[in-house]
């Protein structure tokens, strides 16, 4: 029998990877989260998490950090992306490159550099742990917000703006009623790319000597003390949050037949 090559076979390596490193571990995490030390099914771990003011406090602290980071990123990135997208010159690409370039530099190196700058400004980093954390997070995640926003805004045909103006919309109304709604897919994908990682990115906190835990640090500390059960519980909680946000953002981008920028689909 002759061997026939089909395109589907190209997917085999990825399928193997998916099963070994995504699906299987997910089941491992699930089984750890819902069992106790004796291997019996139990919700004790969840009860413990939500019963302890310390862990719930960590969850809230993570959410606060993540929300503030996301809002600040959005506030900085939107006008930036808007200007970049409106720059019809070739320099637009060069400018965009300037914002994206930090992504090419090693994360540890970047955050160390930021640390030095902040030390220079503040003297002692330990004086403003929260502020420094936010600065570090925003600095780290800004490109992830700019890129999807830029993509969404650059794609917007000028004729929409002109049509709105033609129908009597002032500059403010053109923005609020046409440009902003049409860039929602970009906003949604930017938010998903910033909100979740910033809940777990505890390296930033470590670097700026913020000793408060966020969800990421909690997982790290449980796992490093071989407490697989409690670590898995937190992973599952984060997974649920991701799920909820994805569902909400899909609701937002529905009907945007040609506006799919979302990475989490």
């Amino acid at each position: 029998m002759k061997y026939a090559f089909s395109r589907k076979q190209l997917a085999i390596p990825y399928a193997v990877f998916l099963v070994l490193f995504v699906i299987l571990p997910l089941f491992v995490v699930l089984s750890y989260a819902f069992t106790n030390g004796d291997g019996q099914i139990s919700f004790r771990n969840f009860v413990a998490f939500f019963g302890s003011s310390k862990t719930v406090g960590t969850l809230l602290y993570s959410v606060v950090i993540a929300v503030i980071t996301t809002c600040l990123c959005l506030l900085i990135a939107y006008p930036t992306a808007y200007i970049l997208a409106k720059t019809k010159m070739k320099s637009g690409d060069a400018l965009l490159m300037l914002f994206v370039l930090p992504m090419w530099i090693n994360f540890t190196l970047r955050i160390t550099a930021l640390k030095e700058i902040l030390t220079l400004l503040e003297g002692n980093l330990a004086l403003h742990p929260f502020l420094n954390t936010i600065v570090g997070m925003v600095y780290d995640f800004l490109p992830f917000m700019i890129l999807p926003l830029y993509n969404a805004l650059a794609k917007l045909d000028d004729s929409y703006r002109e049509a709105a103006q033609d129908l009597g919309a002032s500059k403010r109304h053109v923005f609020l009623r046409v440009i902003l709604p049409l860039s929602v897919p970009g906003i949604v994908s930017g938010v998903t790319m910033v909100l979740l990682p910033s809940m777990t990115n505890y390296v930033v906190l470590d670097m700026v000597y913020n000793s408060t835990y966020i969800m990421g640090s909690l997982i790290g500390s449980y796992f490093s003390s071989y407490d697989w059960h409690n670590g898995s519980v937190i992973s599952i909680i984060l997974l649920v949050i991701i799920g909820i946000i994805t569902v909400i953002s899909n609701r937002f981008t529905e009907g945007e037949s040609d506006g799919k920028v979302s990475v989490l689909r």
Partner: peptide, 20 residues
């Protein structure tokens, strides 16, 4: 006068209907 203050309306070449 800017376009929004003119008593003139346009049918654009590619229609430019708002997709949202």
């Amino acid at each position: 006068l800017p376009p929004n203050e003119r008593p003139i309306n346009t049918v654009f070449q590619k229609y430019a209907l708002f997709p949202h």
